[in-house]
Amino acid sequence: MLQSPALRAYDRATPLHLLLGSDTHGVTRYAGEVAGAAGAPVARRAQELVAGTRVHLHVTDRLLARDPAEAASAVERLARRVALTLTLHDVPQPTDGPVFHARAAAYSRMVRASRAWVTNSWHEHSLVGRWCTDDPRGSVIPLPVFRTLLRDPDTVERNAVPVLGVFGFVYPGKGHRQVVRAASALRRAGRLAQVRVLGRAAPGHDDEVDVLLRTSRARGVPVDVVGRVPEGDVAGALRGVTVPVVAHRNVSASGSLNSWIAAGRRPLVRDGAYAREMAVLRPGTMTLFDDGSLVPALEAALQDPATTWTSPGTDLGPGLDDTAAAYHAWWSTVDG
C-alpha cells in the first residue's frame, strides 16, 4: 500500500527503541509499553543497532551499570553511533546520599550526549536543570495511567480491621515507617488499624523489611508484608485495602501513585512539588497531606471510606495513547 509523503515522514520520525535489562525492571517495562503504543521497532542489544539510526532510550544509571560514570560512558558510546534521544528516569537529587554528585555528573554527561531528552514531570525537569545541566533541549511527557476496569467500591470486600496500604518497593524514605507510626497513633486513640505492604524489598535494602517489622511489633501495629504482587493481581490488591497511602519523601515520578489511580483509588499522598504537579494534572485523584496531618487525614478517610475512591467520570488522563502521541509530536521536532 502506498503511503503519503506526510505519513512516510511521520514514520521516519519514530525512532527505534532500545530496551535494556529485564522486563521485570519498571523502566524497561515502561519503555516497551511506550514502544508498543508508538508503533516503534525494538532492539534488545546495542550491538544490533545500525550506525546513524534514530534511537530512543529510557535510561536510569542503575539499569546500565553500578557505577554512574560507567553508565554515562555507555550512553556516550551509543550516542556516537546513533541519533540518540533519551527519557530520563530516577533523576538525581541530594537525598540520594553519598552517590548524589556522581549521579548528577553522569546525568549531565548523558544529557549532553543526546540529541534531545525528556523527563516524566516538570519537577524532574527542574532537578536536571538545578543539579545536572542547564540544557534547553529538555521537554516533559508525563507518565500515563494504565486504566483498569473499575469496580463499584460497595462491591469490594470490607476488612474486619481497617487496612492502610502502601504499594511498591520497600526502601528508606518510601514512607512505610511513617504509616506504621500513624497506625500506632490511631490505635492509641482507640481506632484499630493495620498496615499492608504490597511489595518487596528494593535491591540492596533487604534489611529494611526486617527493620520495619521490628518497629511495627514494638509499636503494637500488625504489619503484613505481601511481597511482590503479580501484574495480573495488582488492581485487586490495590482495591482490597481500606486507605491507600503514598508517603514517599523523595519522589520525583511515581508509577505506584499511577497504579493506585488506575485501580480507581484516591490515595492520601504526601505533599511535595511532584504531588502538587500531579494533583493539577489529574484533579480529584488524590488527597494531599503533610507530615503533621497524616493522622487526621487517615481518621477522615476511615470515617468516610468513599473519599478513598475516585468519583465516576473522573478524568484519569493522560493515558498510554496520549503519551505515545506526545512522544510522536516531540520526536518530530528533533533533528535527525
Rank of each mutant, 00 (worst) to 15 (best):
S4P: 01
S4A: 06
R8N: 01
R8G: 00
Y10F: 08
A13R: 05
A13H: 00
D23K: 01
G26Y: 10
V27M: 03
E33C: 05
A38Q: 07
A38V: 07
P41I: 11
V42G: 07
A46P: 00
V55D: 02
H58E: 12
H58M: 06
L63G: 15
R66G: 12
A72L: 14
V75K: 06
R77V: 01
T85K: 05
T85C: 08
T95Y: 08
F100A: 08
A105M: 12
S108L: 05
W117V: 05
V118C: 11
W131G: 02
D134A: 08
V140E: 07
F146L: 12
L149N: 14
L150A: 07
L150I: 10
L150D: 03
G165V: 07
V166A: 06
P172D: 06
G173F: 03
Q178F: 08
V180K: 04
A183I: 02
A185D: 15
L186M: 13
R187L: 00
A189N: 14
R191W: 03
V195D: 05
L198Q: 09
P203M: 10
E208I: 06
E208T: 11
V211Y: 03
V211E: 12
R214Q: 14
G220I: 05
G220N: 01
V223N: 02
R228P: 09
V229P: 01
P230T: 12
G236N: 11
A237I: 09
R239W: 09
V243F: 01
S252Q: 12
S254T: 10
G255H: 06
A263I: 08
V269S: 02
G272R: 05
R276N: 11
L281M: 13
D290H: 11
G292W: 06
G292V: 08
G292Q: 13
E299C: 11
D304N: 13
T308Q: 05
P312C: 07
T314S: 08
P318L: 13
T323M: 11
A326H: 06
V334Y: 04
V334K: 05
D335K: 04
G336H: 15
